[in-house]
Nucleic acid binder design. Structure first.
Lengths: 190, 190
DNA sequence: TTCCGTTCTTGAACAAGATTAAGTTTTTTG
DNA sequence: CAAAAAACTTAATCTTGTTCAAGAACGGAA
């Protein structure tokens, strides 16, 4: 199951067999069942997580006491709180599995070691983060320039399988409106 | 004026005198006056821009014909379209000076060369991008969980000098509401 | 200084989506 | 299988922010 991680690396950088072995030796596999947490608000985040299979949500609690989902992570995505990880400060986020999942864990210390033994990994994460950043610029554009209904339809068109995978109230939170409103949208379509 | 760039590098990585000289040799200084463009919608972005002094806006045109400001860049920030730069595809964004500004230009080819001669630079950009990403997660949280008025007050509290620097209609666009509404907010405060 | 273009303000009518509070369906668990 | 918990729906009312349209103020250039 390290293969999916290596494949992802290979998509952006070239690494040799020796380096692959080093990586596999230092990365640890972990099963995370539905509703289990890999990071809780207030804890210091100590690892970067590569999702081999499954689905996670990252959320924070608002001042009105509700949970605001900021991002989802699925197969072949990284998920972590970079601020907490880098500064070793308590996180404001909670990361929870929303399906039975399998992840690969790269501990902070290990990751720093890997960066110095395989500098190409810095490049890999730089490229990954560039892509994430571009996606976030678009996300803000969508939030500002589409109605809730348009945003739901757009998301539905882009990731139809994903919409089936998570409860509707989570999708509503991620898309920035209430579950009641999502119900209304769906009612309109039939 | 290369000093501000080197100082920014030194904040995140350590580089020696020799490397600093290489960087200075390859980075070009440029004055960009108010309302001048460094990237226009449809063009391929061919450089990464470090703002030494001044202010830029990055926007795209919406289907209703208006300009949606996605981000600002000020002193000591990088601005570019990473998607267009990396893939060498036409950009959907326009980047325009909103003050008389001074920038340092790192051409794509030059940047790639610098990455291979000074691998630490990959690390620098990785860290920068991590920070940007964290900021964007918070930005989405603010957009979803604060009213327009709260968002304006919050932004005003965080960057009071900046609010004075740009026209109100640009600020309104960046914060995701109409100039008319911003006027109304300001009227309420007095 | 005057003129012109740009930016900012005000107000009325309207739309998108939140809130509240039931009620219904689905899923989980003992 | 029954009961409880979790997820989803519906509808009435209320808020936030938009749109449109007009006018006022400001800033820069001739």
């Amino acid at each position: 199951m390290h293969e999916s991680l290596l494949a992802h690396f290979r998509r952006y950088i070239s690494i040799n067999d020796h380096e692959e072995k080093i990586i596999c030796k230092h990365v640890t596999y972990r099963v995370v069942n539905n509703k289990e947490y890999i990071l809780k608000e207030g804890q210091v985040c100590h690892a970067n997580y590569f999702i081999v299979k499954g689905c996670f949500r990252m959320y924070l609690s608002t001042n009105t006491g509700t949970e605001q989902i900021i991002q989802f992570g699925i197969d072949n995505w990284w998920i972590t709180d970079y601020t907490s990880l880098e500064m070793q400060k308590p996180s404001i986020y909670t990361i929870q599995a929303v399906e039975n999942s399998e992840i690969l864990v790269i501990d902070k210390r290990i990751q720093e070691e890997l960066f110095s033994t395989i500098p190409q990994l810095e490049r890999y994460f730089r490229i990954i983060l560039q892509r994430i950043h571009s996606a976030y610029l678009m996300r803000i554009h969508y939030i500002y320039n589409m109605s809730g209904e348009e945003r739901y339809n757009h998301f539905n068109g882009m990731f139809p399988e994903f919409v089936q995978r998570v409860p509707q109230y989570m999708l509503a939170s991620y898309l920035g409106f209430t579950p009641e409103f999502l119900s209304k949208i769906r009612a309109r379509k039939s």
